[in-house]
Amino acid sequence: MSSVSSSSEKCRLLELPTELREQIWIFTVTEWIPTKEEHNGPSGRGSQPPMLQRNPVRIDRFNKPLPPPITRASILTRNETLPLYYAYNTFECWRPLFWVNNWSQSTFIDWLTSLTAERCWWIEDITLLYKHEAELDHDIEEGLTDLGIELQPGVISSKRELTELEMGHLIMGLPKHFGKQGRRNRWLA
């Protein structure tokens, strides 16, 4: 029986060239889901495997995901993967409401203030979700600057109007049209 100390073992993954490791890290730290493509051919053996597409990381009052475990495996992997996690994911958050007494206590602002300034700067894509167009009256970038939160210019790339029911339809197993404006639910009438 041989005794091997863990400190003398080398990790082959960390011996790969930096460029190859980065490609592996990007795949590891990015949220992925299978694409829903319609196939005309028969399914089963010999059919093409499903393709993957990026899935946004949703941050709301019920869901504040941590970066993937690989970012906590070692100091080296943390230094290599954490910037990639923030750079290669799209983060979806509810837009803060300016007319609430203290809009800075929104989940979005709470999440950004929990990050270091360096991590905020790594973020490259945020989509803000909102319920009504009236929420778009105030400039969010100006509000973030007032709070001392600095993001790269253009990080908040899009805004999307959703109802809470639409946002949660997949999680609750409901049809996609459930909760859309203009539709009246029969059981609520």
Score class of each variant (00 low, 15 high):
P56G: 07
R58L: 15
I59P: 07
D60E: 07
R61C: 11
F62V: 11
F62Q: 15
F62I: 10
N63L: 14
N63R: 15
K64M: 15
L66S: 15
P69H: 10
P69K: 11
I70M: 07
T71K: 10
S74Q: 01
S74Y: 02
L76Q: 15
L76V: 14
L76Y: 13
R78Y: 06
N79T: 12
E80M: 12
E80V: 03
E80A: 15
T81R: 01
L82R: 14
P83C: 05
P83E: 07
P83A: 06
L84A: 03
Y85T: 07
Y86Q: 13
N89P: 05
N89S: 07
T90V: 04
F91I: 01
F91H: 12
R95T: 00
R95S: 02
L97G: 00
W99C: 03
W99R: 09
V100N: 04
W103N: 11
Q105E: 11
S106E: 05
S106Y: 07
T107W: 05
T107M: 12
T107L: 06
F108T: 05
D110G: 15
W111C: 08
W111A: 06
T113W: 01
S114C: 03
S114G: 09
L115K: 14
A117G: 02
E118I: 12
R119A: 14
R119W: 06
C120V: 09
W121H: 12
W121P: 00
I123D: 06
E124S: 15
E124K: 15
E124F: 00
D125M: 05
D125N: 15
I126H: 06
I126V: 14
I126S: 05
T127N: 10
T127M: 09
L128M: 12
L129M: 09
Y130P: 03
Y130I: 02
K131E: 10
K131S: 04
H132A: 08
H132T: 14
A134Q: 03
L136M: 13
D137L: 02
D137P: 00
H138R: 15
D139I: 09
I140F: 01
I140C: 08
G143M: 07
G143D: 03
G143E: 04
T145S: 10
D146P: 00
G148C: 06
I149R: 02
E150I: 10
E150W: 04
L151I: 14
L151N: 09
Q152G: 08
Q152S: 11
P153E: 10
P153W: 08
G154H: 04
G154L: 02
V155H: 04
V155A: 07
R160E: 12
E161W: 01
T163G: 14
T163Q: 13
E164R: 12
E164F: 12
E164P: 10
G168W: 14
G168K: 13
H169S: 12
H169D: 10
